[in-house]
Write a protein that binds this DNA or RNA. Structure first.
Lengths: 233, 233
DNA sequence: ATCATGTTGTAGCACCGACTACATAACTGA
DNA sequence: TCAGTTATGTAGTCGGTGCTACAACATGAT
């Protein structure tokens, strides 16, 4: 079938196979429904550094990430940036369009060139009511997010920066990286400053902690990638 | 219609009107479906201090809270308890039954006498597929939870204990307490130790912070309740 | 009453980590 | 190739908070 994504994504490096247009869950839908649906969605193709939405914006659209990587962050009242996590192709962001409150609780920034597929509240509502499988998919996705956030809360509550850093690196690598016998491979760069925003620590402290982690063999640089050793058990 | 909840809840103090048995979204369902559904669910009535499930348990059941209050907590690797939040009647817990991983990311403890309604993964799946409205309801609920957790992450990342405490108190009171012209009223007791688990701080530090908050007029004791002043703007 | 248990208040020491400041890479684009 | 920018490394000071220890209550059971 005809999906707008395909036109936009002609030269796009890696693309998620998950698409409202040809999602497996739509296999058995009549063609014209599919077409209507996939064409009613708004597509955005954005460059690194651009935003999808900002914390506090009226939440009127939710998005499915087709390709790229998106950073969810918010501002702490001390004015510092605070990273809530990264989202990858196949993930949904901005699901709280359905909440009454109706503003995004965080901002979404593109870390790389990114392709997303947006749905309005009404479209989204209708979509779920008509195709409950999508609801299930979203629930699973949100559940992962809750797990991650719970983990983060656990992390942040333990004082030690070194441990916090190690665990966050593991989580990020587990979710977004590859894996081999040495451990998880994180193959996109995160600056120390960003890591600081992620674990709520000062940049300088991150640098220190990174060095001791390297020194203790818990992490290792491999060209541009970072190898995070699994916890030996 | 006949709902098991009613039998169990004969003498229960306050009960959530939300019930799979007579949820508004079921209004227009045929009576026998309703009956079958509400009777297939497992009901638990538990006392203060009992658990619904434990972190790491195989996640096979999700629950709708009918009455009472449930504390979600986990153990940090330092072995400390860490409270992720409280859930009230009408909320869902254990939604990650749908995740592949399949273990609960946290434990659920009853803070008071509590009545819950449990559904197996299969029941839950079927329920959502047949009645997508329930899916929507759950998505809304999870979205609130994500907001709370995001907020918590923000809180924990800002170093200052006093601010952390104040904000957590506000959030808890906003969600679970009453409200009058003085501010939010928290009418169930949380010990300083619990507050410590909630903000990831030492009990002694909580006591200190509570006193300065009282001294600065940000909070005030009113018998057994706690009045949390709104931020004046 | 008495005891046991749980909660809150207070003090002092030690230490982690925020912060500032500056040096040294590494990268980017003319 | 050079300058401008961004990322990383290192040092020293200082405040916040963890931790231990103990005292003062409160509550409830026997």
């Amino acid at each position: 079938m005809q999906c707008l994504c395909e036109k936009l994504s002609a030269d796009f490096p890696e693309l998620s196979p998950i698409c409202i247009g040809h999602l497996w869950l739509f296999r058995d839908l009549p063609n014209e429904t599919l077409k209507a649906m996939s064409q009613s969605a708004i597509r955005y193709r954005k460059q690194r550094g651009e935003q999808i939405f900002l914390e506090g914006d009226l939440a009127e659209t939710m998005f499915l990430i087709k390709g790229g990587r998106i950073k969810l962050s918010k501002l702490s009242e001390s004015g510092n940036e605070l990273i809530l996590g990264y989202r990858k192709p196949g993930d949904f962001i901005g699901e709280n369009v359905l909440t009454d409150a109706g503003t995004y609780p965080c901002s979404a920034w593109c870390q790389e060139e990114t392709l997303v597929c947006g749905f309005s509240r009404q479209q989204f509502n209708a979509l779920i009511l008509e195709h409950p499988h999508i609801g299930l998919q979203i629930i699973r996705n949100m559940s992962e997010r809750i797990n991650w956030l719970s983990d983060q809360v656990g992390n942040l509550a333990t004082a030690n920066i070194e441990d916090r850093l190690y665990r966050v690196l593991q989580n990020v690598a587990k979710e977004h990286g590859a894996e081999d016998e040495r451990g998880y491979i994180l193959n996109f760069t995160i600056t120390h400053e960003e890591l600081g925003f992620l674990i709520g620590a000062h940049r300088v402290s991150v640098t220190r902690a990174m060095n001791t982690l390297k020194h203790n063999g818990k992490i290792a640089a491999d060209g541009k990638s970072l190898v995070i050793a699994r916890i030996p058990q």
